[in-house]
Amino acid sequence: MTDMTDATRVTAAATRPALSGRVKAALTLFVLFALMPPLASALNDPFYVLIGTRILAYAIAALALDLILGFGAMVSFGHAAYLGLGTYAVAILSGFGINDLLVQILAATAMSAVFAAVTGAISLRTRGVYFIMITLAFGQMAFFFFISLSAYGGDDGVALASRSTLLGMEVLKTDFGLYYTTLVMLIGLFFLCHRITKSRFGRVLTGIRENPTRMEAIGFAPFRYQLTAFVISGCITAMAGVVLANQAQFVSPAFMSWHKSGELIVMVVLGGPGTLAGPIAGAVAALLLEEWLGALSEHWKLFFGLFLVLMVLFSPNGITGLLKKLGFGEKQK
């Protein structure tokens, strides 16, 4: 029995490290993000702040997708729908003269929660490739719905007159303000997701990923946990959409196209699924490559594809895996 208590103590110690590798990696990224705008202005390249905001917004979406793709093995190929719901929440509310970011976020998450609950409940009746296909189908349904919404420009989309306000203040008016507000959101959401993955709920979700039959055999019905995670992920993705609408000051169904869903998956896979910090890095890498390769050649997607193939071949766990091979980060659990 003494062995037993010893072992229990070991557990408590082993599971409470000062800071896990995942958190350290994320904090490093956040510091770099925080330093970027002053650096960009010093280099007389303030345009990068706006590009940076776009990167941070996609980082939020990639983080959200990782929660279900990496931790729940649910490959949603329709997550762009939530980006779109976020952007349209901004456009539609501003049409009614409501411009506050918090209200927009609230509306975007509420709409996304409903959409995710309904489509998730149906999609989760399938697994694997079928799940991918059915989420794609729902994503396309949302896409075509907004294309037919002529009041908001249909196919062409609609430009926004101004950026959102934050509690009535025009914090987001400057590119710096928008950038740092987005960064605060990203940091908050990262820690939210991190807590979730370490919680009781997170352990169940990961367990279902590892072996759903075993989970049923100890008394868990996977569906309700998977659906909850799916809804949370959709809501967080919608917040990224709210930011994107402000960043582009333009809203169109293009945000919901299946290409976008694919790009989000690429970001997660590129960064390393199931790591949270990885997909944030994945979003940075994918968008910077798009930016740079795009400047080099109009056939940049060819080079990007080549890069992806090499990445998947040589580092199946993405950037996270690459860093681990080089001796950084935490041990694989």
Binding site: T11, A12, T15, R16, R195, I196, K198, S199, R200, F201, G202, R203, V204, G207, M215, I218, G219, F220, Y225, T228
Partner: peptide, 20 residues
């Protein structure tokens, strides 16, 4: 521990660290 968790308390807890 996951099997214990299945019969002890709710698994819809999103915050506390389960390993602790």
């Amino acid at each position: 521990a996951l099997a214990v968790q299945a019969r002890q308390g709710s698994s819809f807890r999103f915050f506390g660290t389960v390993a602790a």
